[in-house]
Design a binder for these strands. Structure first.
Lengths: 184, 184
DNA sequence: TGATTACGCTACCGGTAGTAGCGTAATCGG
DNA sequence: CCGATTACGCTACTACCGGTAGCGTAATCA
């Protein structure tokens, strides 16, 4: 018996998720979210556009999968709540500062504002895991976690969107200070 | 001598800014930011699409002017900093909760993320006046005001974008509480 | 009345997300 | 080795949107 994830018959999918994700972030970094068209991403990945649509139902879904891959899991570090919170916020700020990640997040977020289907994917696949992990780690009620995520993510994205640059370290420190006063 | 704003010759512009702004917010409210196309806004306003483009250079510019009109000036209320801050945050939350305003703001914000020209308009025409007013009212250094606006606006938009609904009063109160702990 | 400017209308361009269909390549079980 | 099956590349296509060009007409002023 073969591994259950591999179907028995037919040509297997070539292993190009990593290639596509890298090409996606690179395209977004160089051309912006709107400029990173599906055609260009396909060319950058050395893949046919139709192949992208065989694997992801829409551009938004591709970007979200790309972001899930880019973010990974939160590395909870530290012993007390202060350290966990501040390291988590710094981790998110750093990730958003990586080339393409912040712009991709802001772009797909804004697409999701008026696309309920995409919003559902974004909320369930990208945000929910972190919400649950934070809830388990901090032991706060759900609405507190929601507010925490709105404040941290919203602030970082807003800065990125208004300036085009990720938030500077000094301001991240001020944000941490502010959050700690409420959630410590 | 005539009023300096009225040029001497030619057919005068008909007074339809208010009509267009109302039609814009209505369209965004009913169809979302992406669904509110320039064609539809024109039809909703009873105006030709070319007339819109004679007055606004782009859809984003129209939305921004519409938002400037919708927001107006901050009504600073209260005697001490606590009252000024909390009433200001509540005012912004209420405005964002008005039909179409939140979606329009989120939509144009996301357009601006990857359109530097639009971002410049957004920053200078919509955000700067409030930044200066807050600076004068609170007497805080510029980077503190920037952080304050990122936190408040970012949080409200993020909630709106992730849920499709404006932030509930209880959470607005919690946001105010949090901001006051840092900026009081 | 003539010059000037704004408006409505139709038609158009360039570009983007997403789809259809075909030939071909890669893998399986027999 | 062979047929079935599935994935891939490619070309062509649709539908839609932001934005523009050009023309006839309406409104205003000198």
């Amino acid at each position: 018996m073969r591994a259950s994830t591999s179907s028995a018959a037919g040509r297997p999918r070539s292993d190009l998720n990593a290639t596509v994700f890298a090409a996606t972030l690179r395209s977004v970094h160089e051309l912006g979210y709107a400029g990173a068209t599906m055609d260009r991403i396909a060319v950058a990945a050395g893949v046919a556009k139709t192949t992208l649509y065989r694997r992801w139902p829409s551009k938004g879904a591709l970007i979200i999968d790309c972001l899930i891959d880019a973010f990974g899991r939160i590395p909870f570090e530290g012993v007390d709540r202060d350290e966990v919170l501040s390291s988590g916020i710094r981790w998110l700020a750093d990730k958003i500062g990586e080339p393409g990640v912040g712009a991709a997040l802001a772009g797909v977020f804004s697409d999701a504002v008026n696309d309920p289907a995409l919003r559902a994917i974004l909320a369930s696949r990208l945000q929910a895991p972190y919400r649950l992990a934070l809830q388990a780690e901090l032991g706060e009620p759900p609405h507190r976690i929601r507010l925490l995520m709105d404040v941290v993510t919203g602030t970082l994205i807003h800065r990125m969107g208004m300036t085009g640059e990720p938030m500077a370290d000094a301001d991240v420190a001020a944000l941490i200070e502010m959050v700690l006063r409420t959630f410590r």
